[in-house]
Each structure stands twice: as structure tokens, then as C-alpha cells.
Amino acid sequence: MVFNSRLLHLHLSLCPQVLFATDDFFAPAENLIKSDSPSFREHEYTEFGKWMDGWETRRKRIPGHDWCIIKLGIQGIIRGFDVDISYFMGDYAPRMSIQAANLEEDKQPEIPQRGVRMGAAATPEEFEAVAELKSDDWNYLVPMTELKPGKPASSHNYFAVNSQERWSHIRLNIFPDGGIARLRVYGMGQKDWTATDPKEPFDLVAIAHGGTCVGYSNAHFGHPNNMIGVGKARSMADGWETARRLDRPPVLENDENGVLLVPGSEWAVFRLAHPGVITQIEIDTTYFKGNSPDSCKLDGCILTTQEEEDMIKQKWELPGQKWKPLLPVTKLSADESHLFHSLTLELQDVITHARLTITPDGGVSRLRLKGFPSSICLLRPRERPTMRFSVKVGFRANL
């Protein structure tokens, strides 16, 4: 299966956090949420045993089973999980289940900081603190299920989730003990818009609020969803970057405004987290020093759910009159954040979708579209996900 929704990215997010684990003897639970793929060091050992790139508990010799609690970096709707047991060929957890809860920030108990963990089990004080979460009673998103090993370097177990509820924490149970290399949580951020200040502008495209990329022309080096991730980019790998266009002229020339005269461009289309009026645009090319775009433009439009689905099938060959300019063709600089006022400040156009076009190619680290949510809502709520979910090998989610 392929998860077209991007992850509640345990990794692009505001620092996902392991709050508790019953045991971290061979390898700490923090490895579960590392952003890179698991690796294997054949001849490396620690003072506690074989070095493993994942979470691995000791062989249990007391009643019970092992489990850990992870606070998601982004609160939102979960569409699926990838429980990766790569390289845990003789010591993977044979069964697992996943529970979830939505906890209010100001009502969470104080749980002791874990620090650097190896060769240790949870203390009585930690058990006492985490008991206040009552995680035994959390909702099951994945019931107890056997894990199946695959190839040593690629052993993924995917689980789809059919839930429209918002979640902030998950509990990963393993039965009774063993190792898991990585846990990926796929889904979409979701903001509680009823609690927002109507006088305060919000980033309407942010992945943390529910924005998502629904189409793009090229993503050779980085997916467009990276641009709407949480916080500032950490490197070029944390942005959208296309391949070099092969139709660029042998010798480049500028027009009278200094914009390159080239035939092609690349684009990405985003569904806003909430329909609204865009008043400020930020296009950040930080880290893209020798590969930033020459120029860009931004357009917006209103689409219903059905129109969006039709456009996805047509690969976004939308009639030109549907798009309205938010930002005209504008020259960009390398490694710099650019702030612009949207044309909609005067036009007061409500939009549901935005299209960023870069010329001729290159990379952008962040896209921010600040504005005010509108009462219009043409995207009907769905009782269940209508998009197919699948995950390709090596896919790196962004929630």
C-alpha cells in the first residue's frame, strides 16, 4: 500500500518526543523516530550487546510486555503506519499494536526527562508518572498483529487507519519484547480553527495546520511538501528541489527586467488547510545557493472536492482562467527569505488552492501563505479517506 498523505511527520515536526519506554536495554526508543533509514554495523558492539539502529528491549524474564509512548510532532489525523523491522532478523518483536489519544497540552502530567538511555529499564518513578496518562485505555488504531520479516535491509509492515479523529500521542506495544527499527506515522496535520483568533493571520498552507501538496511537475531531489513543513529548513534536503530542465537554452539571456528567457518551468499545487484570503507570501531559498530558481509566481483558485479529484486525474491541466494571480513573476535571490504582499489584499479573493511556479527549475526551502480563514468551505468532509494509500520503498514522510 502507498500513503499519498504525508506523515504527521514525526521528523519534520516540532520535535517528536519519546516520553516513556518500559525498557531500552540494547537500543533506545528514540531511534524509532530518527529521520534517516536504519543502518547495520556488522561488527559493532556496545557494553550491553550488539549495536542496533532501532528500539530493542532485553529478553523479558518478568510478566508483561514492553511498550513506549511517543508525542507526535504535529497533532492531526492518522492515515497509516509503517512498522519497520529492517536488520532485526533474529530479534524483532513478533507482535505489536498501536493505541492513540488526543491530549490537551495543559492537562498532561509531568513526566521525567529520559536523557540518554541504554542498558536501562523504566524506574518506578517513571511508571508512576506515565500512569497518569491512562494509556491502557487509549483507542486502538492497530490491534495486536504479527509482524512479518522481509529482506534484511527492507522489512516494512504497513497498516492503514480509517479514523477522522485528531491524535496527539501514540502508544506502541510490542509483545512480549524485541526490536523495531523505525516507526513512521502517516497522515495530515489538523488545526482546531474554532479556537483561532479571527484577527490573527495564520499560515494557511502549513502542513501542521492541514495543508498538503496535491500535485507537482517534478520532485527529483525533494518533495514539495517539505516546503510547508514546521519551522525553518535544516538543509537543502528539507526543501523542494527539481532536476535541471533539459529544455534550457544553450546560452541564457535576460529580458528587460532581468528575468531569464527560458521556455520551461516547474510547479507545485497545494490545498490550503482552510479556505481563506492570502495577505502575505514568504518564499525562502535558504541553503539553495547555486541552485535557486531565477524567478517565481503564485496563483490561487477555488476548487470543490470533485474538481480537485478531476484535476489530479488530469495532472492539473486546469483552464487558465481558473487561476488568479497572488504574486506576479518575481525575481528571486539565492539563499534568502523573500516576503511579499499578496494581490488578494485588494481583491479579497478567497481561495482553496495555490500554485507555486518556479522558473526554470531549482529549489525552495519554505513556502508560507499567511492570511485569514474564510467561512466558505467547498471541500466537503469525508466519512472515510477516498485516496489510495501506498508507500514506496525509501519514501520519507513529512508529518
Score class of each variant (00 low, 15 high):
R6Y: 09
L7Q: 04
L7W: 02
L7Y: 04
L8N: 05
S13F: 01
C15T: 10
C15W: 05
F20Y: 15
D24W: 02
E30G: 06
N31Q: 14
I33T: 10
S35I: 02
E42Y: 06
E42C: 02
E44G: 02
E44R: 08
T46V: 11
G49K: 14
G49Y: 08
M52I: 09
M52D: 08
M52E: 11
M52T: 14
D53C: 10
G54W: 06
E56L: 09
R61P: 04
G64H: 03
G64S: 15
H65N: 14
C68E: 10
G73K: 01
G73L: 08
Q75M: 04
R79F: 09
F81N: 03
D82P: 00
D84A: 00
Y87F: 15
D91M: 05
D91T: 13
Y92C: 08
A100Y: 09
A101G: 09
E104N: 12
Q108G: 04
P109Q: 06
E110V: 13
I111H: 08
P112I: 02
Q113R: 13
V116R: 12
V116W: 08
R117S: 13
A122G: 12
P124H: 08
K134A: 15
D136A: 06
W138V: 01
N139V: 11
Y140C: 11
Y140D: 13
Y140E: 15
L147K: 01
G150W: 00
A153P: 00
Y158Q: 11
E165R: 02
I170C: 05
N173W: 03
F175T: 03
M188F: 00
Q190D: 15
T194P: 00
P201D: 05
G210N: 09
G211L: 05
Y216E: 07
S217P: 03
N218E: 09
F221V: 00
M227P: 00
I228E: 07
R234W: 01
R234Q: 11
R234C: 07
S235D: 12
A237Q: 06
G239K: 01
G239V: 02
A243Y: 04
E256N: 11
L260T: 01
L261I: 13
S265Y: 10
S265R: 05
V269A: 11
P275R: 08
P275V: 12
G276Q: 04
I283A: 01
I283N: 05
D284G: 01
F288P: 01
C301L: 07
I302Y: 01
I302V: 15
L303H: 02
T305W: 00
Q306R: 10
E307I: 14
E308Y: 00
D310I: 11
I312F: 03
W316S: 05
L318H: 05
V329Q: 15
T330S: 12
S337F: 00
S337L: 11
S342D: 07
Q348D: 13
D349C: 07
D349T: 10
H353E: 11
V364S: 05
V364R: 03
S365G: 04
R368D: 14
G371L: 08
F372I: 14
I376D: 15
L378D: 12
E383G: 13
V391C: 12
V393C: 03
N398M: 03
